[in-house]
Structures are given as structure tokens and as C-alpha cells.
Amino acid sequence: MSWEFFGTTLAAFFTLSLYSFLYKDNPFYKLAEHIFAGISAGYYVGLIWHSVIKQQLWTPLFNERQYLLIIPGILGLLMFTRFFSKVSWLSRFSLAFVVGNTAGISLIRQLHGMILPQTRSTFLNVASFSGLVMVLGVLSTLIYFYFSKEHKGALGAVAKLGIWFIMISFGASFGYTVMARVSLLIGRAQFLLTNWLHIIK
């Protein structure tokens, strides 16, 4: 028995085990579910070990002598003080660093990369019917999510239009999601019938 055949059989077994949940919860599903959770967690350990700890910390620190990297190394280790209640306050230094830095990046990214370009694109083709739909859709959606004033009168009417636009978008997203999930289902059926059972050539 080759490793390839063993791998395909294992994949088929776990595929069927997970689908068995459609009938009811059972030990096969539980087994597959726990293995999936375990292997996914282990996957991140491998990934972080190589792409972050080894590549960005260990090698530059010890081989290229970038000693400043001791600081993020220590900050990372401080996160583990959360497990010891007496010194858990130390982990907040690391948290403050990550949250503050992310906030700084986010502030610029949101204003420069999201709000301004999206607003500009909205008003590009305002003269055409489709362009007008775009402007009405964006404005009415924004007004629907504006809760500082009661949705009455003109504001209420625009908010109502916003709901209709949102329903169109949700319907479209729903249709797209269904298509994507069914495609995955077809993919799994193809795997079982072609790769594993060889019924379809």
C-alpha cells in the first residue's frame, strides 16, 4: 500500500465521518472533529515556528546579530505571564504595544486606503443610471446605519431605501455563498468518486 493510496483513503474516511453529522452526532464525527481541531492548531505552531520565530526572530538575532530583536522576543514571552496571576500585569505591556501599533497602522489605512478611495470611486460615473444607483446605494446604506437621529421624515424614507438596497446585497451575497458551498460539495463528491473509488474516470 503506497503512501498516496493511504492518504486518499484517510481523506475519504474523514470526509465521510464529517458528513455523518448530517444524520446525527456520532463518534465518527466526534473523532474527525477533534482531529481537525488538533491538526489545525498544530498547523499554526509549525507555521509560526518557521515563518515568525525562526525566520524573523531567531536567525536575524543570532546569525545576523540584530540585537534589537530581543525587545519583541521579551514582549512575546511576557504574554505567557497571563498564566501566572501574580505577574499577569506584565503581559499588558506587550498587549499595549500590539494594540497601539495596530491602532496607528489602522488609522492611516482606514482613512487613506478605505474611506477616501471608496468615496472617490462612488462618485466617478454619477451621470449614468448605474452610477446614480451606486451613489443612492452608498448614501442610503450609510444613512440606515446612522443612529444618532431618529429615522423619521426624509431621513426615515432614505433609511427605508437603504434597507431595500441592503436586502438586494444580502440576497446577492446569499446566492454567491450558496454557489460557493455547493461547488465545495461537488468537489468533495468528485474526490470520493474519482480519486478514491475510481468510479468516474
Partner: peptide, 13 residues
Amino acid sequence: YPNLAVQRGIIIG
């Protein structure tokens, strides 16, 4: 158009 408009509204908000 209508779908992208709503996505944009949500993204801007």
C-alpha cells in the same frame, strides 16, 4: 452596482 454600493457603504461606515 446595488451590491457593490451596499458593500461600499458598509466599508466606509
